[in-house]
Design a protein around this nucleic acid. Structure first.
Length: 502
RNA sequence: GCUCCGGUGGUGUAGCCCGGCCAAUCAUACGGGACUCUCGAUUCCGUGACCCGGGUUCAAAUCCCGGCCGGAGCACCA
């Protein structure tokens, strides 16, 4: 086959493929009307958005976009104790949304809207659909397990209202009184039976301080907010599947329509194992991680620091879909997506890991060397080719006496004696027999390098890097034959880079 | 234990609602070839799956029943 012929066939085939290629996309949303869809993402800001949050952010925002609808970001921060919010984290969500390329149309802080929830609560009490319960936690559990009403269930709205007001006045201790929604104490799923809508927590809230002592539970707050925000579709993890069954009682009492729901399964990422926000926090406090942006931590800010493109993260999650089965997926898929984006943009440099200095005999003069900086843009960079160069110990270990190798774009070297570290210059033109093998290696001039540390989630690589990287501060570059890395900082002749992926 | 949900190649995913066009899609991974002065990219070829057992039907990945396996919930957490 001639070269012409080959090219023609490739061209032909490429077109065929392009036609067949289907964009990975989210499935259509049931009962979705263009322009009327309201999606929401409702995190508790007790830490920065993680990879897990990203799924919720991306999927909900994508649907809002797909149907020209609205996106509500709602902070479900109604527990100042067990799931204590972090003040800084509120803004982190906004930041990360922006980084992902989305902008919530409405931002709701549940803790600032507690008086609204009180109003609805009072209506329910008046309607006899909720009651104040003075049972101890364990006591009520007995009734729940037995499927029997607790004695307080039959109190009048007036009696309940009185207790409610005393709760608000701080006349009860924590745990002494709660407000329950009347559901069905015989419901076959015990989780549904008369659930708690409000409880007393004496704790300063990071956002609203000491304004409240009676806080709504997630189910109550979320039920009211979803109605108030006119949420049309809820997509969330299946751990919240009971919420729907619980909240529907309120919706029925008020005559509201419940949004269309969809619950997805858990995502487990091989590389991170099971890291919850609270366990990350603990590990940070213990000094195992350096912070929320430690490269080993699955937060969006850490991924950003590592040099991931938000576009890659979006594709990664969209490809996971919104199935109800749990998924266990490898970050390699994310790497592949990211590589597609970054490969074209990244400038190439030499980073020599575990550097070994060698002297090339017969190499008398310094030769200026030009190498491709970015192959897809055809730009070039320069290095000084001299008699003494660093090569990686990893490469050296593979070589034997008598073998030839080539310093990429510079010169050929024969190994005279590997034990005695004797090397000999054999020319600058590339030779066929070298080209065949894997013996073209990267290198650095002895006298014009910077120290370099590459931090990866697993380990820290030490070596030397060419001075040219300073031009790419903050960006992702490729250290040839090593990996893609983001150049983070340079101080005292030492460059710090973060390992992105191979 | 009780209540729900789910099980398609190594890993994800499409198809399942409305049985036939599915000897099952796409991606990634893996193996091999080409190309390239990177172990990256590109490109070509290949490997590889409908959890099991019954039933309904001319026909089942798709519907029904049972089993097995996995998950979630059963909180005054979100």
């Amino acid at each position: 086959m001639s070269e012409e012929e080959r090219k023609r066939l490739i061209e032909l085939y490429r077109e065929e493929r392009a036609e067949k290629k289907r964009e990975i996309a989210l499935p259509p949303l049931p009962h979705a009307e263009r322009g009327k869809v309201v999606m929401r993402f409702a995190p508790n800001p007790n830490g920065p958005p993680t990879l897990g949050s990203a799924r919720g952010m991306i999927v909900n925002a994508e649907y809002a976009e797909m149907y020209s609808g609205k996106l509500v970001l709602r902070f479900d921060d109604t527990d100042p104790r067990t799931k204590r919010p972090l003040v800084e984290a509120y803004d982190w969500y906004l930041e990360d949304f922006e980084w992902l390329g989305y902008k919530p149309d409405i931002v709701v802080y549940a803790s600032k809207r507690i008086p609204i929830y009180y109003e609805y609560m009072e209506k329910l009490i008046d309607m006899g659909k909720a009651y104040a319960c003075l049972c101890k936690r364990e006591e009520f559990k007995k009734y729940r397990d037995a499927g029997e009403n607790c004695p307080h269930r039959d109190s009048s709205p007036e009696q309940s209202m009185e207790i409610w007001e005393k709760m608000l006045d701080g006349r009860y201790e924590e745990g002494e009184a709660v407000i329950r929604i009347k559901t069905d104490m015989q419901h076959k799923d015990p989780a549904i039976r008369d659930w708690v809508a409000f409880r007393i927590i004496y704790e300063t809230h990071p956002l609203v301080g000491d304004r409240f002592i009676v806080y709504p539970t997630l189910d109550f707050e979320s039920a009211i907010e979803d109605h108030l925000n006119e949420t049309t579709h809820i997509i969330r993890g299946k751990d919240l599947i009971d919420s729907e069954r619980r909240q529907k009682y309120i919706y029925t009492y008020f005559g509201w329509g419940y949004p269309v729901t969809k619950h997805w399964g858990r995502v487990k990422i091989h590389e991170f194992g099971k890291l919850s926000t609270s366990s990350i926090k603990k590990a940070i406090d213990e000094g195992i991680f350096t912070g929320w942006d430690d490269p080993a931590v699955p937060t969006l800010r850490a991924l950003r620091r590592r040099g991931f493109e938000s576009e890659a993260i979006k594709k990664f999650f969209i490809s996971l879909g919104i199935g109800e089965n749990d998924v266990s997926v490898s970050l390699k898929n994310l790497y592949a997506e990211n590589r597609k984006i970054v490969d074209e943009r990244a400038n190439r440099y030499f980073f020599v890991e575990n550097p070994v200095l060698i002297e090339i005999e017969g190499m008398e003069e310094e030769i200026p060397v030009e190498l491709p900086l970015n192959p897809s843009k055809n730009t070039r960079r320069k290095l000084k080719g001299g008699r003494r160069v660093y090569i990686s110990g990893k490469d050296l270990d593979r070589f034997e006496t008598g073998e030839m190798f080539r310093l990429k774009e510079f010169c050929n070297v024969r190994i005279v004696d590997i034990e005695k570290m004797k090397f000999e210059f054999t020319g600058t033109e590339i030779e066929e027999d070298i080209k065949k093998g894997r013996n073209i290696i990267h290198w650095l001039p002895e006298d014009d390098v910077l120290e370099c540390r590459v931090i990866s989630p697993e380990e820290e690589y030490r070596g030397k890097v060419e001075r040219n990287v300073l031009n790419d501060m903050g960006r992702v570059v490729q250290f040839e034959r090593f990996a893609f890395c983001r150049v983070e900082s340079a101080e005292n002749n030492e460059v710090i880079a973060i390992y992105t992926h191979p």
